Amino acid sequence: MIYIDPPLWPAHNTLFSHLVSDTSLAELHSFAADASIAVRAFDLDHYDVPAGRYRDLVARGAVEVDGGTLVRLLIGSGLRIKARERSASLVHPLLARWEALLPGRRELGAELLNRWGEPHRRYHDRRHLLAVLEAAELLCGGRPPRTVLLAAWFHDAVYRGAADDEEQSARLAEDLLAEANLPAQEIRETSRLVRLTAGHDPAPGDLAGQVLCDADLSVLGREPEAYRRYLADVRSEHRHLDDAAFADGRGRVVRGLLALEPLFRTSAARHRWAEQARRNLLSELAPGISADEGAGGEKALEF
């Protein structure tokens, strides 16, 4: 069943309702598609819909409930996204990680978390930061080099969807870590690692680079429903593009990733994520389009 609460949530000079299913996300996505609700309106476990659509959606079969009832139905369905999957809930856990990494530099960690929490971010947010940190720990048996963890914190600290985001993030790391009085060698290594995330092509033998790049790409190996949420977040970050432009840019990214050989450089990452990642990426290509077609060229958008 599809449910909707009253349009009481202000944003973008209007009020919004939440549209949910108590059965499956497939049902929710199908209802939204039939009602011509853009995929970029999907937010993890619900669609945000403006007040002007409320009556139309009710007429299409969405059941009117109050906000509290809607949340209880979502929790009862098992579809409610946990707090760790919501960027705003991760400030304190991530700040604790930062203080363990660089004791006495709390203000710098807070500045970085503010950057990771910028409102235009829908995928490249604190959830992604935590996922990369956890993946790096997993690949290193819980003890990555400090420079790898610092590079994870800085690798998308500048995110505008521009071609030089990684370069600007690396320069930010150089400036802020110098102000924090880190050794010059550690700063150089951190910024080098950040720059590697532009192409995810570390050299053979560059274990630190391989760990960071594999951790950054670990999202590609998610199970299908989680991968679909990732794609919805990426689409939302590029909501300024029309569907055709986004599809073209995303296709270039997917073909570029499929052209990496291997996609994951560490054996642990290949074992955990490679097979599912290839299935996920191939599922995005339109029928009849070769995985090699159009690979390379200027990066059109962030993956």
Rank of each mutant, 00 (worst) to 15 (best):
S77P: 13
K82V: 01
W116A: 00
L112M: 06
L94I: 09
E107R: 14
T69S: 07
R105V: 09
L113M: 12
A88G: 11
A62H: 04
Y123I: 01
A88Q: 11
P103D: 02
H92D: 15
R86M: 05
L94Q: 09
T69N: 10
R80V: 00
L70Y: 01
R105Y: 15
R122A: 14
L108N: 03
Y123C: 06
R106H: 13
R84A: 04
R72K: 10
G67Q: 11
L102F: 10
G109C: 05
I75G: 13
A96Q: 13
A83G: 10
P103K: 00
G61C: 03
R115P: 11
V58L: 08
A100N: 02
G76E: 06
A62K: 03
N114H: 12
G76P: 11
R106V: 13
I75M: 15
G78M: 11
T69K: 08
E85H: 13
I75Y: 11
L70S: 01
W116S: 05
L74G: 05
P119M: 09
E118V: 00
I75C: 13
G117D: 14
A83E: 07
P103M: 04
K82M: 07
G104F: 04
P93E: 00
L70C: 07
A88V: 13
D66L: 14
V91I: 13
A96I: 15
E118A: 14
L113V: 03
L112F: 11
P93R: 06
S89I: 08
D125M: 02
L113Q: 01
S89K: 14
L101W: 00
G109D: 02
R60H: 00
L112W: 00
V63W: 01
G78P: 02
H92A: 15
A59N: 10
L95T: 09
K82E: 05
R105S: 14
L108P: 12
R72D: 07
I75V: 09
R106L: 08
L73K: 08
R84L: 10
P119C: 05
A83Q: 07
R72C: 09
R97V: 13
G61A: 02
W116Q: 05
L74C: 06
L102I: 03
L73M: 02
